[in-house]
């Protein structure tokens, strides 16, 4: 019954949006002075990274046994997308849903004072540490697991249930991982490109990873947050918080090739991350006629 109500509401909102001839969306005010100050800092940080990369890392990384890739190691430019037809329809559905529902709600959410929003954001990031710890264990990275566990313990206690990122202040940076990365560590390829309803671009491996991570959270059921109505409420608030923190806009490119562009970037980013995960191994040979990710 509840689902039926939601469906009717969603359809109404989607069709209202599709027929309106004029809409004025109040965006959160831009903050150019602060943004530029941040850009100045980033530029300085970049200069530091550049010199570090060129001076120190090369020798260090040689010791670590990193095998550099050559042009021949690059996978095909084309992505493996056997479910393209349905993916394209899902992409359009996601774009419409985002425009009609998720984005307007996220706009309202951003009117809430920043400290409160940070609290919400930190709370969810803290919950995420649970599956991060589990996955580092599965990846046999005890140090990284201990790091995330430490963050979780500090933030859950001193940080009042995760509302404050106290660990971050002690330079314990958040280093999330998930089951998709674990699968990658076990040598699983990304597999077919997959556009997940409401969530967006992924690969089959990411989809499985997502289910795995949710399964972990569900089984552990921390503070009984993952069963019953509160689980729904939790997911909705989490989704809105995530959306409010992402600058992406569907079809901001205006381009008929946006689907191809997003797919290329998504799949190849994942392949580069995989390549980084296996930095000391010889890259797998790629058949140039085989689409990437297969």
């Amino acid at each position: 019954m509840r689902a039926a109500h939601c469906a009717v509401l969603a359809t109404a909102a989607l069709s209202a949006c599709a027929t309106q001839n004029l809409s004025i969306r109040n965006l959160p005010a831009e903050t150019p002075a602060a943004d530029n100050a941040e850009a100045v800092e980033n530029a300085a940080a970049l200069a530091a990274v550049e010199s570090a990369v060129t001076q120190n890392n090369t020798a260090q990384e040689r010791d670590r046994g990193v095998i550099p890739l050559t042009m021949a190691d690059a996978p095909s430019m084309y992505s493996y997308d056997p479910w393209e037809r349905i993916n394209r329809f899902t992409y359009r559905f996601n774009a419409r849903f985002d425009d009609a529902i998720l984005l307007p709600v996220a706009d309202q959410y951003r009117r809430i004072p920043r400290p409160i929003r940070s609290g919400v954001h930190n709370f969810f990031a803290n919950l995420d540490e649970v599956k991060t710890v589990v996955n580092y264990a599965l990846q046999l990275h005890p140090a990284a697991g201990a790091h995330s566990l430490g963050r979780f313990v500090i933030n859950s206690t001193i940080g009042i249930g995760g509302l404050f990122d106290v660990a971050g202040k002690f330079h314990l940076k958040r280093e999330p991982t998930g089951f998709s990365a674990t699968l990658a560590g076990w040598g699983r390829h990304p597999g077919p490109y997959l556009v997940i309803p409401l969530l967006g671009p992924a690969t089959l491996r990411d989809g499985v990873g997502l289910l795995g991570d949710y399964g972990v959270s569900y089984v552990i059921d921390l503070a009984r947050l993952y069963r019953g109505y509160q689980a729904w409420a939790l997911e909705v608030v989490d989704a809105v918080d995530q959306r409010a923190n992402i600058g992406f806009r569907y079809y901001a490119t205006g381009s008929p090739f946006e689907y191809e562009t997003v797919r290329f970037l998504y799949v190849h980013r994942e392949l580069i991350e995989d390549a980084a995960l296996h930095a000391t191994e010889h890259p797998p040979g790629h058949d140039p006629n085989e689409p990437a990710g297969r």
């Binding site: 995420d128 999330p176 969530l199 992924a202 949710y214 989490d238 995530q242 992406f248």
Partner: peptide, 14 residues
């Protein structure tokens, strides 16, 4: 929803 970090990162890459 818990595993959507991948999505966020993809958007960042975009």
């Amino acid at each position: 929803m818990r595993g959507r970090a991948a999505f966020v990162v993809a958007l960042a890459f975009l």
